[in-house]
């Protein structure tokens, strides 16, 4: 192997010793990190794949059962629902927070007054632990004592003052997390609250890297307002958009804490997602093999998007070197 770059002046020893030396230093710098990573990330990933084809219950010896777990998965409604909900989650994540984050970045990048305050308002949710977010939102959604229904009661009181026939207290009947039609969307709303700031940060950084001379030139040519955005800025932001979309998808697939704390996937799996379903089958039902099969599906879906991401990263790599 050519090690020309490492030791361009290898006049201090033969090539043999340089290679040995390099090997020694590689070991020093990469040995421990690779060992740690291999043991706690790579090995467990592979292990999950082998577990998925067994009926392991965590105790009795595992028996190889081929594709049986996967066959059962796709026949189980809870799993299909979880898959479907992850898809909904992805669709919402790549549309609402993405466009909202972009819009905010566009506005705040123009140097408005108090922009620091405005930015912090959107960043803050990112700093909260997801589990804390889940608990605070769990309280917001509480039918009797929650903030949301309390606000709704006040609004209805006002509507009643206007002469409409409504019972303000009926707002307390709304079970944001208990109603099968609302549970998933309520959980996703809390997730969106977190995500908008993230997207905004990414686009703000992206906007700063845009070539301002090109933009000025376009302005001289009369490009303005939405057209400037539509034909100049947005295409120039394309690489950031790719990253934002990939991150949004991966974050959707990782979503666990909010679901686990707010609804546990309920009522009856109407807010179930793959990650929570996996934990449930592994630790409640004690079907580790089956849970590993869920994990494999989760991994494979993510992997598709990881490849897109990797391609982007590697393309950048080519351009750089």
């Amino acid at each position: 192997m050519q090690s020309a770059k490492t030791t361009p002046r290898s006049n201090r020893g033969s090539r043999m010793t340089t290679n040995l030396q390099q090997f020694f230093w590689l070991l020093v710098f990469l040995g421990l990190p690779l060992l740690l990573y291999g043991l706690w990330v790579i090995y467990p990933t592979i292990r999950t794949f082998t577990l998925a084809f067994t009926n392991y219950d965590g105790l009795s010896p595992a028996r190889w059962i081929g594709w049986a777990n996967f066959k059962e998965l796709f026949q189980t409604e809870a799993f299909r629902l979880a898959l479907w909900h992850n898809l909904i989650w992805i669709l919402i994540f790549i549309t609402i927070p993405t466009s909202a984050g972009l819009a905010l970045a566009m506005v705040l990048n123009q140097g408005v007054r108090f922009d620091r305050f405005l930015k912090i308002a959107f960043y803050l949710p990112l700093v909260l632990a997801p589990v804390v977010t889940a608990m605070v939102w769990g309280w917001i959604y509480h039918p009797q004592q929650g903030l949301l229904n309390t606000v709704l009661v006040e609004i209805l009181r006002f509507v009643k003052l206007l002469g409409f026939k409504v019972d303000p207290e009926s707002a307390r009947q709304i079970g944001w997390l208990g109603d099968p039609r609302l549970a998933l969307l309520s959980v996703i709303a809390a997730a969106v609250w977190r995500q908008v700031g993230y997207v905004m940060v990414l686009y703000l950084a992206g906007l700063k890297t845009l070539d301002s001379e090109v933009l000025e030139a376009a302005k001289v040519d009369g490009a303005e307002g939405f057209n400037l955005f539509r034909y100049m800025i947005f295409p120039m932001l394309a690489p950031v958009t790719t990253i934002v979309v990939v991150i949004s998808i991966v974050d959707s697939l990782r979503s666990f804490d909010l679901v686990n704390v707010m609804t546990l996937g309920g009522p009856f799996s109407t807010s179930e997602v793959l990650a929570n379903y996996m934990v449930l089958t592994a630790f409640h039902d004690y079907r580790q093999g089956y849970a590993a099969a869920v994990a494999v599906i989760l991994f494979l879906i993510t992997f598709v998007f990881t490849l897109i991401y990797l391609r982007q990263v590697m393309a950048q790599e080519e351009r750089r070197s």
């Binding site: 509480h142 039918p143 009797q144 009947q173 709304i174 079970g175 997390l177 109603d179 009522p267």
Partner: peptide
Amino acid sequence: LENAASYTWQDAANL
């Protein structure tokens, strides 16, 4: 009680 799935047993007992 409607919307039972919104209530823990403690919530319901509180009602």
